[in-house]
Structure formats: C-alpha cells, structure tokens
Design a protein around this nucleic acid. Structure first.
Length: 355
DNA sequence: AACCCGGGGAC
DNA sequence: GTCCCAGGGTT
C-alpha cells in the first residue's frame, strides 16, 4: 500500500462519506460510539441510524443506561435482532459507570462484555487515539480484492491480512480517518455484489479488478443448510385490543422477548399444538387459524401458524410474572419483529364466534 | 475452527 | 429464492 493510495482513499472519503448521526468530530465521546458500534455488529448502517437516534433519546448518557432496568433496554432494542448484544452492552456500560471512567486502551476495552476484536479497536481508535485497526467484514473484503487474496471472509488468514493492510494505511496516513474510510468504501463502493469499481480510489492498484473478477473475492463461504421449522402461536385479543404475550423461555430462540404463546409443532398437527398452547394460557373455545407467517432466524426458515382465540374463559395465568397484556401496535415490553408480522396476519381474523 | 444468534435489504 | 451485513461468545 503506497502513501498515494492512502491519500486517495482519504480524499475520496472526505468527499463522499455519508452524513451519519453518530459521526462527530474527534476525539469522540465513547458512549455514543460504543452504542453505535455494538448496534452495527452484523447490522447494516442504514438500519442502525434510526435505532441509534431512538436509543440515545431514551438513554442519553452512560449513567442513564446503567440505571435503566434491563427490560427497558431490550425494549429499546426491539426489532434490531441479536438481543444478547443489548444485554452485554448494558452490562459493559454498568461496569464503566461503576469504575467511574472509561478504559482507554484496546486491551482494556476488550475485557468489557460484548467488545471483541472489532469493537474494542473501534472505540480505542475513534475515542482514544488507538492505532490498532478495527477489522470488520468491509475491511476484509476490500483487502481480499485489492491484494487478490482467495480467502474466505472471517477466516484467520484474511483477518490477519486485513489487519496488516489497515495498519499500512494507518502508517501512510496516521489517524482514525483511514479506518473509517476503508469501512465506508466497503459499505458503499467495494460492495459484496456489483462493486462500483469506476468510482473506487483504490482501483489503480486492485488485483481483483486487474483480473477482471472483483466479485469473486473474497471466496464465498460454504453455505449452511437451511432448516425448515413449523411453529404455532396463540393470538388472544382482549376487548380493548391488547393481546396476551408471554416471556420466551431462556435457552430458546428469541429468549427473554415477549411474544404471543409460541410452540414448535414438531410432528404434531397444528390444531393439536395450538390447543396445548390454549390450555397453558387457560382458554377454551374455538381456535381459528390465521394466514401463516414467515420468519427467518439465521439458517432457519420458520413458518408460524397463528390461531386466534377469544378471551371468554377466565385466565388462570393472568397474574403470573411471565404473562402480560400488551397493545401489539405499541408494546411496552421487549419484543421481536415477529410480533408485528403476527398482528398483520391476525388482523383479518377479527370476527370470532363466542363460545 | 465451527457453531450459535435476528432481521431486513439487495439481488 | 439467495447472500450478507461496521461480530462476539461459547464450545
């Protein structure tokens, strides 16, 4: 990597970087940087921005986040996915507040829960002058293409090569700006498919472009087999429009979130599995199937079949801690985007015979 | 090193 | 339909 390349990259970045609400002058405040970097883990920036703005309004500083109960934090995270990130961020910020100061080096930051190699390097570089490069998927992809490395994303060799590549950039142009510039390049120009090479400041030295096949780098990862699952769910609306939600058990998908009673149907018939849920919820009477809902969680394709019931029967579990009546359009608890899908699917099944 | 976890946008 | 994303934790 020549100094000319680093200079061209930074010039391109200054002319083309997107206006993002978490981009503020250096040195930056570590709290919003940490929040946005954790949100950005495996999540595209365009989806992070609105969530970040909401989150910062609810929890404007480390003290307010540390003081908040976990369920409020998860509620603010609803729909973002990877909910463990929210719990770990909460724990990390509580540790910082308890310590009374922020760790300033990458190694110290990496001891906080939820901060791995990428996030610890990012906070150190953007807030405290660190020179260890934050290596994310963008940096790995740009590196694989510029150097023509036939390696898989997230593999050890490509991570090390990307780390060395970013260190060279930093040496040619010291400061955190080059790190942001590579990531922005990967996000907007050196994209996974259909890269816009004519716009790329690194095109003159790019090996993948020289070979005419930039899209073949990095090597595609072996795909995990997708697995189909069938769930049933009990949609139980009350007269005021609220529906019954249950806290999803730990150790399962969507653990800790609030959703209508759900069960994997396994080999059972949908109706039988739904009836079991109705018994658990303390309701009898007719169950009306609503249109199935598709929901994907990593390599699983889940078909959720909602069954709509009525609330005529007294609720045995009404006062239990794991049950709650919530407005499905604006739940006051942590939930998944699956709730919104179920609400739409069940909206048409509103006229139910009363037992 | 391999696998686990949400969700949606891009294609 | 497919892939992948400003990843980290666990095994």
């Amino acid at each position: 990597m020549t100094e000319a390349s680093a200079a061209a990259l930074v010039d391109w970045f200054r002319a083309n970087c997107r206006e993002l609400s978490m981009r503020t002058p250096h040195p930056r405040d570590p709290y919003p940087v940490l929040v946005s970097e954790v949100m950005a883990q495996q999540t595209q920036i365009d989806r992070v921005v609105p969530a970040f703005d909401r989150f910062m309004e609810l929890f404007p500083d480390a003290g307010s986040l540390a003081a908040a109960p976990e369920d409020e934090v998860l509620q603010a995270w609803s729909g973002l996915g990877y909910y463990r990130r929210a719990r770990l961020l909460h724990t990390a910020v509580r540790a910082v507040v308890a310590a009374g100061e922020w760790p300033r080096t990458r190694a110290e930051l990496a001891r906080l829960p939820g901060l791995g190699p990428y996030t610890s390097a990012a906070v150190a570089a953007f807030c405290f002058g660190g020179d260890d490069p934050p290596v994310d998927g963008n940096v790995e992809r740009v590196t694989a293409r510029v150097l023509g490395l036939d390696l898989s994303l997230a593999s050890g060799p490509l991570r090390r090569a990307a780390d060395a590549f970013a260190r060279d950039l930093w040496r040619a142009h010291p400061g955190p700006e080059v790190f942001e510039a590579v990531m922005e390049l990967g996000a907007t120009v050196c994209t996974p498919s259909a890269p816009r090479c004519p716009e790329c400041p690194l095109a003159p030295g790019c090996q993948a472009l020289r070979r005419g096949t930039p899209g073949l780098f990095p090597r595609p990862r072996p795909q995990r087999a997708t697995e189909d699952r069938r769930w049933v769910c009990l949609w139980l609306p009350r007269d005021d429009g609220r529906v019954l939600l249950r806290r999803v058990a730990d150790g399962t998908l969507l653990a800790g979130l609030w959703l209508p009673p759900l069960a994997d149907a396994g080999v059972a018939r949908n109706e039988d599995a739904a009836r079991r849920l109705a018994v658990e919820a303390g309701v009898a009477g007719p169950l009306v199937a609503a249109p199935p809902v598709r929901h994907s969680i990593t390599h699983r394709r889940i078909t959720v079949v909602p069954f709509v019931a009525s609330t005529a029967t007294p609720m045995a579990h009404e006062r239990a801690a794991n049950w709650s009546w919530e407005d499905p359009a604006a739940p006051a608890v942590a939930t998944s985007s699956l709730l919104a899908k179920l609400r739409r699917a069940c909206a048409d099944v509103s006229t139910l015979p009363r037992p």
